[in-house]
Design a protein around this nucleic acid. Structure first.
Lengths: 271, 271
DNA sequence: CGAGGAATTGAGTAGGTTCAAGGCCGGTGG
DNA sequence: CCACCGGCCTTGAACCTACTCAATTCCTCG
């Protein structure tokens, strides 16, 4: 549909508003960040392991993934980056990247210079907190991956990953039903879940014949969400897609208005 | 030995100095944080899943672990917390904990109120950056766990975990040779590495007979570090135990001295 | 001294891998 | 426009790593 290519509100704003209500001003600032988007084609590296950490990025649309290549040629995919995700926010604290980031499809990303980030944190504390929160949320997603790899069966892992991706897509307004474009090959699913492509294939076959999902031509539809979540042991709460506590929201509201007054006073001073 | 119970410098200072050289003032502030330590006995929860996130803590000595209990009774251990580790630094951004933290041995932890954290970030940017870095470092450790669970054999996982723990202990001055006190049972190792206790036992047996390690009465000695690291595919660099880039250090030095001047000016004003 | 969990070992099983081969699909070049 | 090519998808069969079940011994703690 048309709305898919030009969303009413950018994924970044959609995502961060889940953390705390954003003022119009906040939204405008965030949209501004996305202006200088770079277009990347599919299957290219944004950064590679060993390189000096780049500036932070926002992923505008498309899809990317963090991965590590092992000496023996094996690959482990760490996380997927979806529209609205901010990545490498604090990579600058390290001297070298310990993983690579690659695109899966043609993707637009917007770099955010470290100076802008710093300014954002000082001048727009609520945005700063929201960015911080989104980083912590990505950590939570990593924890779920550990639980999945450590203590779930192959079917559980696959079901979990599909559920996670659909939930995250929905949270940023890219999907509204339980269907998403899923540009992942079976080898990629395998390298994410610690399995082989062959086995992924068999699990998907089972899911299809059980009426849990359909997946063809890069389009995934969850046909029976409840049952899939059961197989997955999936609980959306663990992804922390929702908001902060009232107390925290209030705290940043206060910081924000103090800052806004500060800006206003300075502006008056300039006239 | 005596130095083990009363180290020359606290683990927290030892750890954070790896990120950037700390001024005497910084070290004093950090030591001050550790004053109000709480003593916890072994096998108690510091926080439990579902609870409201607590204030951040520093682990002074002892050992703790983050874990998740699954509905079917299975357990997945996420990470281990060693002396000098700061945890739950930004948990307050979530409404509920998605995992629990428990002690493995009698442990001392010092809570740091959120106000103090905020002050620290503003007044001592270098400490703030170091804390931030230590959080990002914990994320890197999580990534390694994902790689281990996803793409390493049982022997590789065990070897990796043992290598990781020894490296981390050494980085905070708790160990100087390649031997550490390791209060982990085989069921705990199993729940960390996505294996069963029985299989852990067989792997350890092999390691012992191959002369890679000794492990008895909760004492681990790496007898052949090189060979163990080979089995593990272990590369200490991935843990980012080392420091920041010269550029970043310089950046925070500058922030720090600006802040120090500010404090001095304010102090003069009070007289 | 008794009890309960941890460590250890053996035997049988199973979930997932490996190897292999054929079909499909999308992209590329003639 | 079509033929070709490479990677993905699919399926079968044999195999292996790690699990399960179970019994014994060892430690540690009360």
């Amino acid at each position: 549909v048309a709305s898919a290519s030009r969303p009413a509100v950018s994924a970044l704003v959609a995502k961060l508003s889940h953390f705390a209500p954003l003022a119009d001003d906040d939204a405008r600032v965030l949209e501004g960040l996305c202006n200088q988007a770079q277009r990347l084609e599919a299957d290219v590296d944004v950064v590679a392991e060993g390189e000096v950490p780049p500036s932070p990025f926002v992923l505008i649309d498309g899809m990317a993934y963090r991965y590590r290549l092992l000496p023996d040629g094996k690959r482990q995919i760490l996380t997927f980056l979806l529209p609205g995700d901010v990545f490498e926010l604090h990579a600058f604290l390290f001297t070298a990247m310990d993983y690579s980031v690659g695109t899966l499809v043609p993707t637009r990303i917007a770099p955010i210079s470290r100076d802008i980030v710093t300014t954002l944190f000082v001048e727009h504390p609520r945005i700063g907190a929201a960015l911080w929160w989104s980083a912590v949320q990505q950590e939570a997603i990593q924890r779920e991956r550990i639980v999945a790899l450590g203590r779930r069966t192959a079917a559980g892992r696959v079901a979990y990953l599909l559920s996670e991706l659909v939930s995250r897509m929905r949270a940023v307004g890219v999907s509204h039903d339980h269907a998403i474009g899923l540009p992942l090959t079976q080898p990629e699913l395998a390298d994410t879940l610690g399995l082989t492509a062959v086995h992924i294939n068999r699990v998907l076959k089972k899911f299809r014949s059980d009426g849990l999902i359909t997946l063809e031509r890069r389009r995934l539809v969850l046909q029976d969400v409840t049952r899939l979540h059961e197989v997955a042991g999936f609980d959306e709460g663990y992804l922390h897609l929702g908001g902060a506590s009232a107390e925290v929201v209030l705290y940043y509201d206060r910081l924000e208005s103090e800052r806004a007054e500060g800006r206003a006073a300075r502006d008056r001073g300039l006239h």
